[in-house]
């Protein structure tokens, strides 16, 4: 098989070099702020949210969960990051489960051609098309109108699902579209009804796809603030607390929060990555030579 090289630009070696340099710069721009943030989160006690570093300390991490004492003296936002983080975690897990299940159902249904499939597809997309703050305002006004108090879980869940479900759905649809239907047909022929086929065949084979969908659901929800800010009520989620923390005075504490949030995200990505790759049947003994029939 011919090497799938860049045959069409083969004579332009400099294009490749310029592009490579550009990609490196681009990735630096993506991660540069992160790196700066990590460094500054270890700023000394007397330092501000900028360089130069006034020594190094874990002072700002300690202050995350213990904001009393001198906090007010330096005009810092007193956030409740620990509890806000817990709330966000609960919310994101719930949103993840609901939207992944719904998305799997919807995508499975969409494989059969039925009347109205087209309009329903676009209805699902409307969820991400409506501007975020509009969704938040609309839901907030609705709850206010019918006299229900805003709550970080109760009234926030719907706006989050509206945001995450379409992404999960798109992922699931992409996965299903690349799924070999004949494995399911084989199962049906062997006596499995549609439910058992789904349970024994479709679901296990699709596990990586479902994981990807769940990952989208979790991170989008854990991170969401544009919709949440108007519907969450008095108890903040983590992003709202971060938003609050920037309103009064920015101290390196916000970078410490940023590092923690990023670590949580990485941990979640790692867990999902592990689960995704660990879903194949592993033979009990390997290393035998391949038999040729």
């Amino acid at each position: 098989m011919p090497e799938p090289t860049s045959y069409h630009v083969a004579r332009f070696g400099w294009v490749k070099i310029v592009l490579a340099v550009y990609v490196v710069l681009f990735v630096l721009m993506l991660y540069g702020p992160f790196i700066v943030m990590v460094i500054l989160s270890f700023q000394g006690e007397d330092g501000g949210p900028t360089f130069p570093m006034q020594g190094t300390s874990v002072f700002w991490y300690e202050r995350l969960f213990n904001p009393s004492g001198t906090a007010r003296d330096i005009g810092e936002y007193v956030g409740d990051f620990g509890n806000a983080g817990l709330r966000s975690l609960v919310l994101a897990l719930l949103v993840m489960c609901i939207s992944t299940v719904l998305a799997t159902m919807a995508a499975q249904a969409m494989r059969a051609r039925f009347l109205g499939a087209g309009p329903i597809f676009y209805l699902y997309l409307v969820g991400i098309m409506i501007p975020g703050v509009t969704v938040g305002l609309g839901h907030a006004l609705f709850w206010q109108g019918i006299g229900i108090d805003k709550h970080w879980l109760g009234t926030t869940l719907p706006v989050h699902i509206l945001w995450t479900f379409p992404f999960c759905f798109i992922v699931m649809l992409t996965v299903f579209n690349r799924f070999d239907r004949s494995t399911e047909e084989a199962a049906m022929c062997l006596g499995a009804n549609s439910w058992r086929t789904f349970w024994h065949i479709t679901l296990p084979i699709m596990k990586p796809g479902i994981m990807a969908s769940a990952l989208f659901g979790f991170t989008l929800s854990f991170d969401e603030f544009a919709r949440t800010v108007l519907v969450a009520g008095s108890q903040n989620t983590l992003p709202l607390d971060v938003l609050g923390a920037t309103t009064i005075r920015i101290t390196p504490r916000i970078f410490a929060v940023g590092v923690i949030i990023t670590l949580i995200s990485f941990a979640v990505i790692g867990i999902f990555g592990y689960l995704m790759t660990a879903s194949r049947y592993r033979p009990r003994f390997t290393g035998q030579e391949e038999h040729q029939v």
Partner: peptide
């Protein structure tokens, strides 16, 4: 997959 808010804040010291 990480926080967009944090990514915005992270530009400040730069």
């Amino acid at each position: 997959w990480t926080s967009a808010l944090i990514r915005m804040v992270a530009w400040l010291p730069l």
